[in-house]
Design a protein around this nucleic acid. Structure first.
Lengths: 280, 280
DNA sequence: GCCGCACCTTGATTCAGGTCAAGGCGCGGC
DNA sequence: GCCGCGCCTTGACCTGAATCAAGGTGCGGC
């Protein structure tokens, strides 16, 4: 495409940092104009509630910057974070009064919001948009099931390693090839220990202990409570006990067409405990 | 509608027991004819694999009878069941080579199968079908997140009580007002202890202990390892620690517009242990 | 009937990780 | 600077549930 074609000034949406990744970015010009007209930017401070768990949200939207947590709370206050929403991720529940998932800002955040009913109408008028939405929701469902495996089967050290690897992958997928320019891999964790605990189904104390043990073993270095340097990626993968989280091929070059190994022989094998198997 | 209108003989699909509940049942006549032409019935014996976890499934479909388990397996053999599929539920993953979820028959099962690509083509040609699919997948996502709360926050006794309440609800939703005619509530658990353990993120031994303890406390009666009589529904709800699983209103009559209580004061409250709080 | 197998139960023991308690650290406000 | 608060860390201790180890039970096959 010729550069001169773009002489026309960019619209607000076209200048949006997540426009390329979000659903709205794939829309045709007419639909984009509708998005432009219907959506508006809202900002939230860390800790503010975007959508209460039990309230009917009037709007849905996309994260433009910052991180949201999607969480569920039990009557006695126990909480589980069921998803971390990063820039370009959708939030909110269409076609239902409520999904019983609350949305809060985990960091200061900028959101692109759109009235829920207006968005539903848009989906009804634009099957291709609804199709892309279906693909996105199917991916979310896959991710949720993956997290069920983590919560149901993995030890806490394995969960922490898996979480860090997923953060690594997300960073890489968003184009940050390394966290730092000099080839070291700096990993920023965008949430507090408390949120990590609520996401991983554990406690802040246990996370602190395990992260420090990982530092003692030179798997990572703690630069700051929320900033690590990954020193030994291979052992991090080992620790996660889940080869599909291995990123080595994306570090080394383009991914080979992956070969998935068969499940282990025993149907009810026990975990080789995180620490025990990594003699150290 | 007049009975005479139905003089025309029913098609195979129209005679299908899940036709009313499944996606295909909502289709217009022309689309239904396509379903009729493209789908075929397959049967599986308990334990057989419908779709391997790592293989590309050529087909998707609906459960007609029996129960399937959707599961994920780690390299060392640990397994997590991420969903139980009952009659009228969909299985399989459209628009992806694989979703890393295996499907196995938990009981003998009859499935209505359709070629995946044919189904995708159908979705592309029929936006109203795709819309209904989106609604179904959104519901599945809600359910998956609910299960994440169970796995991440609840004690094993709470999980078991929640599971039994969910089974009660499903039975009721499918129109079985009581499990038995004489007003007693008989609950058939359609899966083995092993599958319950893999679904609830625990072990068969722990399930056995807790179920028997529940029997000792007269919360339920064990008629058979997979058949219980629910004796004390209220204490079962208490034990689950999750009021939204309460079915009393559906037992008593039409649901009142539910009032959801606010989350507890403390953000990191601890569970009152299943047994302790039910002094017994 | 009897065997063999899969599934379930029960008891003893262990241990991962939660709980409780006590600081440390960093940072914003005054 | 100094205070106070929120967040993180660390240690001691406890316990819920996993693990290990026997049996029991029911059922299909022969």
């Amino acid at each position: 495409m010729n550069a001169f074609v773009q002489m026309k000034p960019l619209t607000t949406c076209e200048r949006c940092s997540v426009h390329q990744r979000a659903l709205c970015g794939a829309a045709d010009p007419q639909l984009q104009a509708e998005f432009e007209r219907l959506s508006h930017i809202r900002t939230f401070r860390a800790g503010e509630t975007v959508v209460g768990e039990t309230e009917e949200a009037g709007f849905v939207g996309n994260v433009v910057s910052g991180v949201l947590r999607a969480q569920k709370t039990m009557a006695d206050g126990r909480q589980q974070i069921v998803g971390l929403l990063m820039p370009s991720d959708m939030f909110g529940r269409v076609f239902a009064r409520t999904s019983q998932v609350g949305i809060e800002a985990a960091t200061d955040a900028t959101l692109c919001c759109i009235d829920r009913h207006a968005y539903e109408a848009l989906l009804a008028r634009h099957p291709e948009l609804e199709h892309r939405m279906l693909l996105a929701v199917l991916d979310e469902l896959d991710a949720a099931r993956d997290w069920m495996l983590l919560l149901g089967c993995q030890s806490v050290p394995e969960r922490i390693a898996s979480f860090l690897l997923i953060l690594c992958r997300r960073m890489r997928n968003r184009g940050c090839r390394h966290g730092s320019a000099d080839g070291r891999f700096i990993l920023g964790v965008p949430i507090s220990r408390r949120d990590m605990a609520a996401y991983l189904g554990t406690t802040v104390e246990t996370i602190s202990r395990i992260v420090h043990e990982m530092a003692r073993r030179r798997i990572l270095r703690i630069i700051h409570p929320q900033t690590f340097e990954v020193l030994d990626h291979a052992r991090l993968v080992d620790m996660a006990g889940r080869e599909e989280l291995d990123l080595s091929e994306t570090l080394a070059g383009p991914p080979a067409d992956r070969l998935y190994r068969l499940p282990g022989a025993s149907r009810a094998a026990q975990p080789e405990t995180g620490w025990r198997k990594l003699a150290g």
